[in-house]
């Protein structure tokens, strides 16, 4: 029914069907990427909606696999959201345990929560690189193409992000 209405709206029926297929196939990927980049699920849904509305407007101009386009637009929109936000507070060092116990096993959920928090403290480029490479599982080459940087830059950003995230979690155990 939705497809029929979309076809009535702006796109010819065939393209409306194709658009809905692309959206269904990439819905989770866009929402997930936006969630890692923004840290709040409501913001991620807003950003993902913006991404797909932009896809709808540019649908006839996208050739082949739209995944790279979707990742690039998602990163750009989330970066814009981030910049409009009130600055993220610096990691609260007072919360860090002065004598962390390295043997203590941390619950997986708690680690994931801390990782989501830690992502928000990274630099914009580091966050985008680590989300696409580690969370989304793209190759370094794909990440470099999406972000428009050299592969060596991506490797360096991911390396820095890994250390920062490890220390962020360690200091909050």
């Amino acid at each position: 029914m939705a497809t029929k209405e979309l076809a009535l709206a702006t796109l010819p029926r065939k393209e409306a069907v194709a658009f809905e297929e692309v959206m269904a196939a990439n819905d989770r990927m866009v929402v997930g990427t936006a969630y890692r980049l923004l840290g709040r699920i409501e913001d991620a849904q807003d950003a993902a909606q913006e991404v797909f509305l932009r896809l709808f407007k540019n649908f006839d101009r996208i050739d082949g696999d739209p995944r790279a386009w979707l990742y690039r637009v998602t990163v750009n929109i989330c970066n814009d959201h981030h910049r409009r936000r009130t600055p993220v507070a610096e990691p609260d060092e007072s919360r860090a345990d002065p004598s962390p116990d390295p043997e203590r096993v941390m619950a997986m959920d708690e680690r994931k929560r801390l990782l989501m928090e830690g992502l928000q403290t990274l630099a914009e480029r580091e966050r985008a690189a680590v989300v696409l490479r580690e969370f989304e599982g793209l190759s370094t080459r794909e990440v470099a193409a999406i972000l428009g940087v050299e592969e060596v830059t991506v490797r360096s950003q991911i390396s820095i992000a890994r250390v920062k995230l490890a220390k962020y979690v360690r200091d909050r155990k």
């Binding site: 979309l6 959206m23 269904a24 819905d27």
Partner: peptide, 14 residues
């Protein structure tokens, strides 16, 4: 699990 936004997008386009 992650929420989907497809229905929101369709409603917004309409």
């Amino acid at each position: 699990p992650l929420p989907r936004v497809g229905h929101r997008v369709t409603a917004e386009i309409r």
